[in-house]
Design a protein around this nucleic acid. Structure first.
Length: 320
DNA sequence: CATGGTCAAGTGGCA
DNA sequence: TGCCACTTGACCATG
């Protein structure tokens, strides 16, 4: 399978959103959520629209040769506050989730999750850790309804997200909490290297997480620039790939630095476009491209190769 | 109806 | 101390 068929994008299809309003990110602010809480009819309607549009995005991906897509955690707004199966529109929501999953499997598409940075399994706060367990289990529950494999093919990707008490102690809390997750959540959970030197490099994750609980490591090519653990990109990539089961292809994350577009901003922020060659170091890994221009960035890269800096000015003209 | 201020959550780094 | 950045900009009150 050519590397171009293994590129993916996260959460938003820019084209469908701008031309047809197709989106899986419909949300509501807290005040609105509270106002509808007695029936949850508001969130139910949003979730229904979101899952219907998920089907459309999967179909669009099939028509456009894209096999890799990260689902938005916002499909069910305020999910941690209710049981998804008790929403008034659940029967219809369930049908659409089943259809989305069936189509994805039929097309050979890989669907994944990346729950947000508020999920801190290793938190010193038992409240936060418990809430995180619940939310991770809910992500997995949705994948179960969709009929996606209980393997890291359908990965649920998180960071350790804290170093409080020291990296070793936090990693230990992570492993302890991991054991309390639902079986299918455990089967899907993978852990990603961080973008700050004080946090977890691929080598750290290998030693402190993989060796204890055996979950795979997602290699984030961009983050590795800021937290290398003294490993080259290629060595880190290969070490990460070695943690995946032999029958499930590994996943990488990729982004170029925003400094190509806005030199004054923090280097670890992500660019709209792809300015660096995307490589899997010969490993066969699938690569999630976290570019702000989403699927448009992938299509442009596949068509034209890396973006050159003069494109930014032209793009600004097109937009205006 | 367009737009700008504001928005659940945890954590760490930086001005 | 307060903002930015990260999984994803989207909601909604105001003019």
């Amino acid at each position: 399978m050519d590397i171009k068929s293994r590129l993916g994008y996260p959460c938003i299809n820019v084209y469908l959103q701008e031309t047809e309003g197709i989106s899986t990110n419909r949300h509501m602010i807290q005040k609105t959520f509270e106002a509808q809480k007695s029936t949850n009819e508001g969130v139910s309607k949003l979730a229904l629209q979101n899952v219907k549009d998920l089907v459309k995005i999967i179909q669009w991906n099939e028509r456009n040769g894209i096999k890799f897509f990260r689902m938005s955690s916002n499909i069910f707004p305020w999910m941690s506050e209710y049981e998804i199966t008790s929403l008034p529109d659940w029967p219809l929501i369930e049908k659409n989730l089943q259809l989305a999953g069936k189509l994805a499997m039929q097309y050979g598409q890989r669907l994944t999750y990346h729950p947000g940075p508020f999920n801190v399994l290793a938190s010193q706060s038992s409240f936060t850790a418990r809430k995180t367990r619940r939310e991770l289990n809910q992500h997995s529950q949705i994948m179960d309804v969709m009929g996606l494999p209980a393997t890291p093919w359908a990965k649920i990707n998180i960071h350790v997200n804290t170093t409080q008490g020291g990296k070793e102690a936090a990693a230990e809390r992570f492993c302890t909490q991991f054991e309390k997750l639902d079986p299918n959540t455990k089967a899907r959970l993978v852990v990603e290297n961080d973008d700050k030197a004080s946090q977890y490099s691929v080598a750290d994750l290998y030693e402190l997480i993989y060796k204890k609980i055996g979950i795979p490591i997602t290699f984030d090519v961009h983050h590795h620039k800021f937290c290398s653990g003294n490993m080259s990109h290629e060595d880190a990539a290969k070490l990460a790939v070695s943690t995946w089961p032999s029958d499930v292809p590994a996943a990488f994350h990729f982004a170029s630095t925003i400094n190509h577009e806005e030199p004054e901003k923090m280097a670890r922020a992500h660019a709209d476009w792809i300015y660096d060659e995307v490589t899997d170091y010969g490993t066969g890994a699938w690569i999630m491209c976290e570019c702000k221009a989403k699927e448009v960035a992938i299509q442009k890269y596949i068509r034209e190769g890396v973006t050159h800096s003069d494109y930014v000015e032209k793009y600004e003209l097109i937009k205006s």
